[in-house]
Design a protein around this nucleic acid. Structure first.
Lengths: 87, 87
DNA sequence: TAAAAATACTCCATAGGTATTTTAT
DNA sequence: ATAAAATACCTATGGAGTATTTTTA
């Protein structure tokens, strides 16, 4: 399985903002792009990450299990970028 | 700057194996693909990562500074994959 | 009715492959 | 002579956009 880092970053953003459109604004991508990211991630992992309910995007239990590692990835990527550009 | 995770994984593999062809074997990609990965990464970061010398691919000082964070990224990606597939 | 999410396309960039050439041991 | 690296070229996939339609608060 090839992990797509962008999808995980989107996952993180959706969790943080609580909505696809919020993540869209935060990442500077369009809402359909974000929607596809989540679809792709769920499909590739064969895990339902969110409940599309009235109150927006609500994490499932399995989704919640991934939040920590997803944040690890995004933060290590960020620190890679910081160090690389600082050289 | 959008970080390409695949490029960083390749960087890590080249460091580990000491050659492009070694990384190619390890990752199951062709040698030209690996070569391009390193080119792209160096170009995007505007950093020379390796000295193409007689003894193969030798890390530069700046390249060496990135090895640790690169390994952080790849290992956090690996643990993401492990946890995700284990759910 | 207004905001969010999903769907349907279109387009282009890029990632990867094969084939080949150059470099160096 | 052999192994590694670079270059050239081609193709297919996917990632992102616009436009539109559903959904639901």
């Amino acid at each position: 399985m090839t992990i797509q880092w962008t999808l995980i970053r989107t996952f993180d953003a959706v969790v943080k903002t609580g909505s696809l459109s919020g993540a869209s604004r935060q990442l500077g991508l369009t809402q359909p792009a974000i929607s596809r990211h989540i679809d792709l991630l769920e499909e590739q992992l064969r895990i339902q990450l969110f409940q599309r309910s009235h109150e927006g995007m609500r994490l499932t239990a399995k989704g919640a299990d991934l939040v920590t590692v997803a944040r690890d990835m995004t933060s290590s990527a960020t620190s890679f970028a910081r160090i690389a550009t600082g050289l």
